[in-house]
Design a binder for these strands. Structure first.
Lengths: 332, 332
DNA sequence: CGGTTGAATGTAACCGGTTGCGGAACCGGT
DNA sequence: ACCGGTTCCGCAACCGGTTACATTCAACCG
């Protein structure tokens, strides 16, 4: 009942049943305004009774678009990427696109080659590559329409969560609240967002307080345990953490060493964590990953649509869009 | 230089350059044994100089396989699924397949419809649906070759991590060590693996100790905070946790309430967590998600290959494979 | 040396859609 | 009755491969 390739009705079947040509059937379904009302209805009827579904593959071949978009992420286990992918997937699905995942760090030639191959099979790229080097990203974006996520590079559309600003604000508020010794538990080495956040914090603090940067640390709870001694040693009374995943481990480790949070040490986290901990006085910074993914995908889809529309018209490249999404700061 | 559809050389180009027909070119590349050695070399040469890459879309149309496999997961934020997807992706990539992600809980008709549509675009499904009801999974598996992950249903190939057995073993060891009051922090309601684990624990304990099941809880660190009071209240001296993500939160909450782990309360976790905590005496149960995903994908690819091979031969459905991967128990 | 055979290659149909172009039918206007 | 202009539809080519079948030719046979 389902041997591949059979059982499914084709456009020709629909056309036959409706008593029209394949061409008319095609138009009736994809460009209804070109077809007389009654004909259209007959075709739609026929399609319905045969429960016809157009072959995306055939469509792809005919019009040169695959309906596939690749999202490149360094890994999946870092929980930061999950909501981004979910958001992107949701947006893609609504537009009738499929999302395929490429786990790539882009630091090796093999990765670049894989992306190259992939570029033949997809309509566009969403690049979430905090560590990738600029030239690599540039070359990818030359392969196919690309939107960067959590990364800004001149000349390539991008979407970032403007967490750096928020980290700066948090630093300012901490200093204003009297903290004179602040620690920052940094993110992975070479990460673009980490660099921005570090700078923003440093700028916000100026010389009004001491800043100790510890790290780099991978964004997992375990890092908190490793960081705890360092944070205590530097005498900080407040700790800003790059990735809120680390906060939980850090707090646990601090508690275990007799440092109460937030009484003895203020540790930044995210809203969900602050809520479940219950203690007031925890600052949280929440990046809406889903929105990040959704926005990026929307941008990309827009670019694809635009490209399809004009095509051969002169210049007027798609307007370069670099979106920044505001990130809220909240105190529990 | 990259207007879609252009720039890329086609098989005809290769054929022309090599001075052979399209057919020969095709054979030289995909079924070399059918072509004379020198001809083959000429074609390969030509393909190389044009850096020809066959259009997956055209191939898909011609031979009825899309080269796309869908993995269905309830969500991405649950860190349990990430390694599964990574493993599956890796295996798919090696076989030249693309993996597409469908985030679906399968509890609504809309989801079923989406899967239906998707089934026209993919060659097979990897279903990771711990909550889905059996009939739903059955109907999906009728749509396209399917392998279940973390779920066993008669008549459908599946791969599960046999964690239930390991949970049972842990329970036994705890009882043997003298614990007479054990708590189990359960997983999400209706989860198939949770049911199996609960049963295994109950069976292992028998009437040698008291078992208190608390939950259901979603598998996130925050759940640990919610569970802590319950766990303390029931007077347990050891707690088995369904999802190790919960353990960290639970430990933190326990510490905050003055309950030391593992001295006052043994809490199960996973190896990474145990290692970073450092305290000895923590039992950890480690499900190798990547292997799960890899194995499942391998199974599916095998089924696809088999289906392609015989096709019209009588009966002899693919042998039903239900794989169980052993899960280690480890004490830090 | 004619005939059989098998390897190597070419021809063309096909997968399932989309789309440019032209023809038929019908419109109102003169 | 004739004509320019629409509207609606069908023919056929095309997207880029795969593959059944036909064809060619050289080797091998009695």
């Amino acid at each position: 009942m389902d041997r591949t390739g059979n059982g499914m009705s084709t456009l020709s079947d629909v056309a036959d049943l409706a008593g029209v040509s394949k061409a008319t059937a095609s138009r009736a379904l994809s460009r209804p305004e070109l077809v007389a009302v009654d004909t259209r209805e007959r075709v739609v009827q026929a399609a319905a009774t045969l429960d016809f579904a157009p072959s995306r593959v055939a469509q792809a071949l005919a019009n040169g678009k695959t309906g596939l978009i690749a999202i490149v992420v360094p890994n999946l286990t870092n929980s930061f990427f999950a909501p981004i992918i979910e958001g992107a997937q949701e947006a893609a699905e609504q537009a009738g696109y499929q999302l395929t995942i490429a786990v790539r760090t882009l630091d090796a030639d093999a990765d670049a080659a894989a992306i190259e191959r992939l570029s033949h099979q997809v309509d566009g790229f969403l690049m979430t590559a905090p560590h990738a080097e600029e030239p690599v990203l540039r070359s990818v974006s030359a392969l196919a329409p690309t939107v960067l996520v959590e990364r800004e590079i001149d000349g390539i559309p991008s979407v970032i969560a403007d967490a750096a600003t928020t980290f700066g604000r948090l630093a300012t508020e901490l200093v204003d609240a009297g903290h004179r010794n602040i620690a920052y538990v940094g993110g992975p080495d070479g990460s673009w967002p980490d660099r921005r956040r570090t700078e923003a914090i440093r700028a916000a603090i100026g010389d009004r307080a001491t800043l100790t940067v510890v790290g780099p640390y991978p964004p997992v709870a375990e890092s908190g345990f490793t960081a705890a001694p360092e944070v205590i040693a530097c005498g900080a009374t407040a700790t800003i953490v790059y990735a809120s995943a680390v906060s939980l481990g850090l707090m646990l480790a601090l508690e275990a060493r007799g440092v109460r949070t937030p009484q003895d040490m203020v540790v930044s986290g995210d809203a969900r964590m602050a809520k479940s901990i219950g203690t007031p006085g925890i600052p949280s910074i929440d990046v809406d990953g889903a929105e990040l993914g959704r926005t990026a995908m929307t941008l990309l889809l827009g670019a694809l649509a635009a490209r399809g529309r004009r095509d051969a018209s002169a210049a007027s490249h798609a307007p370069l869009v670099q979106t920044r999404i505001a990130v809220p700061l909240h105190w529990s």
